[in-house]
Write a protein that binds this DNA or RNA. Structure first.
Lengths: 83, 83
DNA sequence: CGTGTAAGGAATTCTGACACG
DNA sequence: CGTGTAAGGAATTCTGACACG
């Protein structure tokens, strides 16, 4: 499910993360929720999954900079080693 | 997806129905959204699908009473004709 | 019967900032 | 760096009612 339909409150419940954490991960360019005309965030189930991966990795010691490479969009993810 | 995660606004966008229509179908016992602690409705993708079926049938001339039998929960849906 | 609407209130979310570290 | 929090405002949703029919 890639449709952006959940408000941040629901995502908090599903992930156990705080609004602050979720918004911060967005600030660090790790997740990209859609926005309503009014400016409210809308997340997909994929986003929820990604957020959980992010939190998981952070508990393992990674910082948001490193995560940007690990939890990257699938398209870039499997790029072959150039050279 | 049976998880109740969407607010009524998103459901309106997905179905093209008005909030009024959606709430009315609930009043007629055709859909059963979950509620947040604060009282806000939360719908699942199944609910969205059911709402579309309801609207479809209504345009075909059925009223909410008749629909309660047609668009019934799957468990009751295939009940064998008794007698 | 089914749906639109204005009304007033309440729940939810938003941003920018201060704080700690 | 990552996250908590109080602050003030704005968007979203809620209920009950009047309206038409």
């Amino acid at each position: 499910m890639e449709s952006k339909v959940m408000s941040i409150g629901v995502v908090c419940e599903l992930t156990g993360l705080s609004e602050r954490q979720i918004r911060y991960y967005e600030e660090r360019k790790l997740v990209f929720p859609a926005r309503t005309k009014g400016g409210n965030r809308r997340y997909s189930f994929e986003d929820v999954q990604k957020l959980q991966e992010i939190h998981q990795k952070m508990q393992e010691g990674f910082n948001t900079f490193e995560l940007k490479e690990i939890i990257s969009p699938k398209t870039k993810r499997c790029a072959p080693a150039y050279r």
